[in-house]
Amino acid sequence: MMAAHPTLSNTRPEQLIACPFCDALHLRARVKVGQRARCSRCHTVLMAPRAGSYLQVITLSLSVVILMGSAVFFPFLTIAVAGVSRTTSVYEVAFAYSDGILQPLSFVVLAVIMLVPTLRAALLIYAIWPLAHGRPPFARATTALRLAETARPWSMAEVFVFGTSVALVKIAGLATVSLGPAFWAFCGLVLLLTLNEHAICKWTLWQDLEDSARP
């Protein structure tokens, strides 16, 4: 746990951090790899740095971008019933809502399952790349990272894969369904996105960005 200091009010603000969940002040300290720093008041884990995390985030994010590129247009699912068959891609799934009043929903679906995860990966690469190489961050790296944080709840690729399995059960009795390469790509994506989520210690990253920006 981080120590709540008795004379915190006399400390300069730049030596302090405040818990975003309960506003408790803590002395800013560097947390070692493998250790976890919890808030002394609400016990939320604030920092949990991991070894080699930046290189890992870059590798995973690059894989996300590449895999997403292939997942979009390749066949996703194929259905066959009574001699008629149809193959659909993820792109077509999003545009299932392209009729009339539902049209905006197509763009929402496209955004949350593909654009947001890809954008987040790209932003993370932009913000972290120089840090992994021991250089000062690129211009507006903080804006990139903040945007990536804002977009986090709207990245729903894993919910989509879950939805796919529900849809499969719904039509399994009525028709023969076969899984295309894009389906497996999406399963891989979910794994990568989850690993990526756990590789980042947000607050350590913010501190590193600030420290490495100083000349």
Partner: peptide
Amino acid sequence: GRWSMVDVFVVAILSALVQLG
């Protein structure tokens, strides 16, 4: 929060797939 979106995706997948005239 995000997991409630699952039904919207199920509908999208079903209506993209089941277009068999």
